[in-house]
Computed example of a mutant assay.
Amino acid sequence: MLFVRYTDGTSPMWGVKEESTIHALSDLPEGEPTLADLSNRSYRNDIGTLVGTEALTQVDADDVSLLAPVPRPGKIVCCGLNYRDHAEEQDESIPERPMLFGKAPTAVTNPGDPIIHPAPDGDEQVDYEVELGVIIGERCTDCTESDAYDHVAGYTILNDISGRTAQQTDGQFFRGKSYDTFAPMGPALVSGDDFDPNSVDVELRVDGETKQSSNTEQFIFDVGELVSYISQSMTLRPGDVISTGTPGGVGIFRDPVEVLEPGQTTEAEIAGIGTLRNTVIAE
C-alpha cells in the first residue's frame, strides 16, 4: 500500500495514493495514522477495505504538494558501502560489518523542493546517491534479523546528497552529509508484504541521463541485518530513518568526475515507491 503525506496549503495530511488519486485518511474517526499504525497489517487491511469502497474523500494528486514522509526524523542512520557494485567501483573489499554514519535530521526536504548548492568556500562538490530509506514504526532494541521487519512502518526513497569537499576536508562524513536540503525524501511510503525491500530496482538520473542503476539484491547487508545490527547499539524509535546505502555510479567516482551544478534536476526512482525529483539551485 502506498501512503503519502501531503498538503493542500493547510495542515499536512496522510492519504493512500492510487495512480493519480489520493484517498484522504483525515476522514477516519480515529484521525491521522501514526507510523505504528502503518506498520500494522490489520490497520492496513482495514484501510484497504475503505479505499476499495471509496468511503474516503478523494483528492487529485496534481492539486496537492507531496511532503517527506518523516519531516524531522529522530535520527538518520546511514550505511556506507552496502552495494557490491559500489564497493567494486571504489576498489574496496566487501566489509565484514555495516559501516555506519549519521546525517542531521534537519537535512530532510520534500519532493519537488530544491537542493541548495552550498558555497562556503565556492568549491563544494555536490554529489547524488539514490538510497532505499527504512522508516521505523515501532520501538526496537536488540531485535533479531527475522523480527526486524515487524518494527518497520515502511520504505521510501532518500537521495543522500553529499558535500564531497567537506567530507574530504574533514576526514569524516557528518558535515558533508548534513547541509540543509541534503536529504530529499519521498515521494511516498510503501508498506505491506507485497514489497520486498531486498529485491527492487533502484535508479538515479540527472537531467534525464541515467547515472545509477542497480537492484537491492546487490545489498551486502539486507534490511533485516541492518535494523538488527543498529538496534544492538542504539534504540530505534518511531520516525527514525535508516538509509541503506547507494549503488555504483556516484559522481565523485566517475572519470571524469560528474558532480551536481545549479540548474540540474535529479530523479531518484525505486520500483514500487515512485520517483523523487529535486532541482539544484545556488545558495
Score class of each variant (00 low, 15 high):
V4P: 13
V4F: 13
R5E: 12
Y6K: 13
T7V: 08
T7R: 10
T7Q: 09
G9H: 03
T10H: 15
S11N: 15
S11A: 14
M13Q: 15
M13H: 15
K17C: 08
S20E: 15
H23I: 05
L25I: 01
L25P: 00
D27M: 08
D27F: 01
L28Q: 13
E30I: 08
L35C: 05
L35G: 06
A36C: 06
L38Q: 00
S39W: 05
S39L: 00
R44I: 10
I47H: 03
G48M: 02
T49K: 13
V51S: 14
V59F: 10
D60R: 14
V64P: 13
P71E: 10
K75G: 03
K75R: 10
K75L: 00
G80V: 13
E88Y: 01
E88H: 11
E92R: 15
E92G: 04
R97I: 09
P98D: 01
K103Y: 01
T106K: 09
A107L: 08
V108M: 12
P111D: 09
P111A: 12
P114D: 14
I115V: 15
H117A: 07
H117L: 02
Q125F: 11
D127W: 02
Y128E: 06
V130E: 01
V130H: 03
I135P: 06
G137P: 06
R139M: 07
D142W: 06
S146Q: 10
Y149S: 07
D150P: 01
T156G: 04
L158F: 12
T165Q: 12
A166I: 07
T169S: 08
D170Y: 03
D170S: 11
R175T: 03
G176F: 05
Y179E: 02
D180F: 06
P184K: 03
G186Q: 03
P187T: 11
P187L: 01
P187Y: 01
L189C: 01
D193F: 03
D194E: 13
D194Q: 11
D196M: 00
P197W: 07
Q212L: 14
T216W: 07
E217V: 13
Q218T: 14
D222G: 12
V223T: 03
G224D: 08
V227K: 01
S228C: 04
S228T: 06
S228D: 09
S231M: 14
T235I: 02
T235G: 04
R237G: 05
P238C: 09
D240Q: 06
D240V: 15
G251C: 08
I252L: 08
D255K: 14
V257N: 10
V257C: 10
V259K: 00
P262I: 10
T265R: 11
T266H: 13
A268R: 03
A268V: 07
E269Q: 13
A271S: 15
G272C: 14
G274Y: 00
G274R: 02
T275D: 03
L276M: 05
E283M: 07
